[in-house]
Design a protein around this nucleic acid. Structure first.
Lengths: 338, 338
DNA sequence: TTGAAAGCGCTAACAC
DNA sequence: GTGTTAGCGCTTTCAA
């Protein structure tokens, strides 16, 4: 591996000059810079990130993105959006996929594994606990959350309560009065805020129109396809079957509909179904849903990170910024009047 | 930030002893080790990866995973599998998502961005060109490919030609003789080997039973949902419509079926459809497909990486190992006899 | 405009 | 068992 020393010797200048030339700093004559650049290419010189980081105050030029799952479309799309923006600015993305494992969550959010490894952290789809917040603050690097609001950090998200209420309003407008909810709580030992908020939107919608809450109508679909299937079977088997089901995610809605149809029920004739996300597959199921900008949230979160990382002169203490993106009802063919 | 020096002073020993104690090396008395460990926790000491890397020969304890897309289920599942295995061994995952961008591909595979940043590289779903292979070899770190076979490196994959032939055999057995192919080539400027191999399987299957190749029946679905939709429309509009379509991926099959149905065609009565992958959504479309182990391929590729990284004593020159996993026909309801 | 030299925070020989 | 002493490959004063 050719190092800066080899380069310096080759060009006949000092390592300091090489360093300046390579980084485009002033006080290097054009001719020297050119010779250095040329030799660098010729010798295939690549600076060691370790040495650079060590010598210049521990920067890593990389940010960690922590996701509860990476195989779910929503999270993958968020990662994609964030990666694009960060890559443009020369940052690398370190992926921490908790994969529904609470031990992994603890390791990443409570211990110091991230310390000194990254310049910033993007936490997606998790509502950090007070201890986790404290632990991450102790690490010193800026944090941005996506999908949850933490006062001390910048965040991007949608209003989950309102998204739920949009879906519910649609069902109520269609005349449905017995509406089931399929959501998820404390999923795999991870603590999310989204499931809670969506349940809350469901409940408050019913409350607003004077309908009673029926615990039997609140189902746990674990935010997965299979969970949706289970709930679909449960709904089909109910004595007093609901005329509509509000699923807190499209994936659960898809699983649910499949089970419903398997049980001989028609959607939307027998049961109306509405989801949340506008998953890439939603249109193929003709699923009525509440669309949220996913890729976009990833991009914005990444921009917030860049903002907190500041320009060339290190982390700027910026005030936390909370962005809330709009959602939109997309009516397709899985909902109909009672 | 407390450094090894602070720790040493605190405990009253030298930094060398602290280093040994922390890393569990021999020649440290139990009592000393305990005191060091205790103080480390108390002071919240975390070694600087930069310094460690620099001092101990440039290791990074991280590996790069290069994927052409991260939002497609297949790649996300591969990433998940690989991450699990690498994380267990204490490696971090640097994600390089090309996102269908050939400039990005060039940057990652041809330039030296990866040099000194990672200990190894996992290239997924791309058939590196000769120049790319040469460029990566110049970087020195071990490389493993997933989904393509490169002689100089270890690899995991399925036999794509055979997977195609399995699907085709199924259609031929059902009596289909006019069979269209939906695949993709040179997708977004990226060069894949999978599309080519799957096309080859289609062609050779027809050839084997003495059927002619009809260029009009070979469609480009770009390996996307939308591409599948386009092909579905094209198929529906054909004068001599095929009785069956073999799609080189489930996602294209799903898009295709949707367009077919929109055009008033029934699946499988009017057209049989078979895909490849066994995408998590395939069962909800009752899609007949050729299943490949996805998560598993990610895990195995990661193990190959660990193998090439060797134990504690650095990269071992291991002979490339080429693993080929079996596929399996999953018959559901989108295929029927003519 | 350039160079010498002192670190950055750790590991690794080697000596004790 | 433990400490001393060099670096690892850069950046960054400070002089020149």
């Amino acid at each position: 591996m050719t190092g800066i020393h080899d380069l310096a010797r080759e060009v006949g200048v000092s390592t300091a000059t090489v360093s300046r030339a390579l980084r485009g700093l002033p006080r290097v004559s054009e001719s020297t810079r050119e010779r250095v650049l040329e030799a660098a290419v010729r010798l295939g010189y690549v600076p060691s990130p370790h040495a650079v980081g060590l010598a210049s105050g521990g920067q890593t030029r990389s940010v960690a993105i922590v996701v509860p799952f990476v195989t779910r479309w929503y999270f993958a799309a968020v990662v994609h959006g964030a990666e694009q923006v960060l890559r443009e600015q020369g940052y690398d993305l370190l992926l921490y996929n908790l994969a529904g494992d609470s031990a992994a969550r603890h390791r990443v959010l409570r211990t110091q594994v991230l310390t000194k490894r990254v310049d910033a952290v993007l936490v997606v789809g998790l509502g950090p606990t007070a201890e986790e917040i404290a632990a991450m603050q102790r690490q010193g690097s800026p944090v941005v959350t996506l999908g949850a609001r933490v006062e001390e950090w910048s965040s991007v998200r949608i209003d989950d309560v309102e998204a739920s209420r949009t879906a519910m309003r649609h069902l109520l407008d269609l005349g449905h009065r017995r509406i089931a909810f399929v959501g998820g709580l404390g999923e795999d030992g991870l603590d999310f805020t989204t499931p809670t908020a969506r349940l809350e939107g469901y409940r408050s919608s019913l409350h607003d129109v004077g309908l009673p809450l029926d615990p039997a109508l609140e189902l746990d679909g674990r935010f997965t396809l299979d969970g949706g299937v289970d709930c679909g079977r449960a709904v089909a088997a109910m004595d007093q079957r609901p005329t509509a089901v509000f699923c807190a995610s499209d994936e659960m809605a898809i699983g649910l509909m499949s089970a419903l149809r398997e049980s001989g029920l028609r959607v939307p004739e027998d049961v109306s179904v509405v989801g949340v996300d506008d998953h890439e597959m939603a249109r193929f199921f003709d699923l009525t849903t509440v669309r949220q900008p996913v890729h976009e949230q990833g991009r914005i979160a990444a921009q917030q990170i860049l903002r907190s990382l500041g320009g060339a002169d290190g982390p700027a203490e910026v005030a936390p910024e909370h962005v809330e993106l709009a959602t939109e009802l997309v009516v397709r063919a899985t909902t109909a009047a009672v």
